[in-house]
Amino acid sequence: MYSFDIRKADSVAAAAALIAQTGGRALAGGQSLIAAMKLRLAQPGTLVDLAGLTELQGIRRDGNALVIGAMTRHAEVAAAADVKAAIPALAALAEGIGDRQVRNMGTLGGSLANNDPAACYPAGVLGLGATVHTNRRTIAADDFFKGLYETALGDGELITQVSFPVPTKAAYVKFAQPASRFALVGVFVAQTGGGVRVAVTGAGPSVFRAKALEDALARTFTADAAKAVRIPATGLNSDLHGSAEYRAHLIPVLAARAVAALA
């Protein structure tokens, strides 16, 4: 690790000011960031530790939405009665991230800000059409994920909470890469007030919506309808774990499994 300075702030506003002033980086649970720093893939001069900021904690039901603080850990989301009752697919998604130790440190906001192409949370946020709240504005999920490790967040902009509209029903099915437990491909299917939404992670440079699957499932919400869809491999990820064609094939297969789980 290169040397760095680590600071704490007593409010989100103060943390954002510190980041702006130092050109530093926010530290959430650090489960990706610390690993990247150890590999010298990341070398922030200053880390601003967000742990302990109570404004960023907690899970609450707000009308027809579930609002989760950015620093809420995966293990807390997975175990929360409010999440299990309102959006069980989100609790199950959180329960499937990494392993127990990672879920005990990793946070919702950290995962979204990092936007790893194979992370699970982006699929849940995009699939449910959630709204990302920051210290400056609100950003619709459709506008948040911009590309490989890239989001709509500006310099010094911090995610404060995420508001998930409660869907009619939803399911997430992940084909896990067995060593890392990241998604080789993960598909989140939701029936919402605004129609069917299908978000795919692990397959492309960033999470994306599969319009062909959404259209097919809007016509007939069956596993067979999902399975009949063909997704082109163009632009999808290809690596030693699976070719682009393999990932393209997995997308409708997993979407069908998600739909079957909802039957």
Partner: peptide, 13 residues
């Protein structure tokens, strides 16, 4: 009380 991996956490955290 929470199990974590101490090789991936800063002492300062």
């Amino acid at each position: 009380g929470r199990a974590i991996k101490s090789c991936n956490v800063l002492a300062a955290q």
